[in-house]
């Protein structure tokens, strides 16, 4: 008998394939995608639609002016933009966080159902009778929710930039295509998503109510909303060093959370108490 690794790529991949097949056959899987598309329309309506409808440029608003001053200070790429182009760049910059946020919230339903769903379908017991470790199970369940979220995030990013290039003022899309944006989308976003989903999966392993598990994820979303608001009001700006520091902190939190999730996962309680 050989010793089993804490996390086996083979086992994780095996279960991940099952999860993806299961997801593709589920009609509910379309919903997060639709939510993302709808959410993406919001910044376009505000930055481009509102000035057209009201006939007043957004740059005349005092709060926006305050934000623009901050943007000019921290964001040299946008400083050369003028008038409405800078406003649009500012707004699209603010809503960039939403490109991170919406797929996460969409995937939370998947994560919330992960362990609970297996238990309710009575598929968990035979699964736990295999050499699958608790870490295998948790990692797979998080990845099963994370990967669709990342795909949605990538598609949303593509659509977002295509929309800015097509509908926005000249130079807006180019101003946003910065290393900071790349860090936000490809490092901070996935890390944050991983943590949020891990929290929900851990909650899913501790409760037999999917809605309850999902609520835990909402708590994780609060900091990102706070950053959005802080940036919007000019109180705070996510610079590259801040993003890098946050990414480092999130990576540590992710590892600690995974360890914690494994430590508090009670196979026996799930098998014997949940109905």
């Amino acid at each position: 008998m050989t010793a089993d690794a804490l996390v086996s790529p083979t086992r994780v991949l095996a279960l991940l394939r099952k999860e993806s097949q299961d997801l593709l056959r589920s009609r509910a899987a379309v919903l997060p995608g639709l939510m993302t598309l709808l959410a993406l329309a919001v910044p376009f309506v505000i930055a481009i639609g509102v000035p057209i409808i009201t006939g007043e440029p957004l740059s005349s608003d005092d709060d926006v002016k305050k934000g623009l001053d901050l943007a000019r200070h921290y964001w040299p790429d946008a400083a050369s933009l003028s008038g409405e182009a800078l406003v649009q760049a500012f707004f699209f910059q603010q809503f960039l966080m939403m490109v991170l946020l919406v797929p996460v919230t969409g995937s939370m339903a998947l994560a919330a159902h992960s362990i609970i769903g297996e238990k309710q379908a009575r598929t968990l017991e035979p699964l736990l009778a295999t050499p699958l470790t608790t870490a295998d199970l948790l990692v797979t369940k998080v990845l099963a929710a994370l990967l669709p979220a990342l795909v949605m995030e990538a598609v949303a990013t593509g659509l977002y930039f295509a929309g800015m290039a097509l509908l926005g003022e000249r130079g807006v899309a180019a101003a946003l295509a910065t290393p900071r944006t790349a860090l936000l989308l490809f490092v901070l976003g996935p890390l944050f998503t991983f943590i949020a989903l891990l929290v929900v999966v851990i909650a899913s392993s501790r409760t037999n109510d999917a809605r309850g598990a999902q609520q835990f994820g909402t708590f994780v979303v609060i900091p990102i909303v706070a950053v959005m608001i802080a940036q919007g009001t000019g109180a705070f700006w996510l610079t590259v060093p801040v993003v890098l520091a946050a990414a480092g902190a999130l990576a540590v939190i992710a590892v600690v959370l995974l360890w914690f999730g494994v430590a508090i996962f009670e196979r026996e309680r799930i098998l014997t108490r949940w109905k």
């Binding site: 008998m1 010793a3 089993d4 097949q21 299961d22 017991e125 035979p126 699964l127 050499p131 699958l132």
Partner: peptide
């Protein structure tokens, strides 16, 4: 029973426990 031992054990649970959509 350890995970390594579980490789040598087959358990048929009371309910078939199949993934219905698969």
């Amino acid at each position: 029973v350890t995970p390594a031992m579980r490789r040598r054990i087959g358990l048929l649970t009371e309910s078939p426990g199949l993934w219905d959509r698969l």
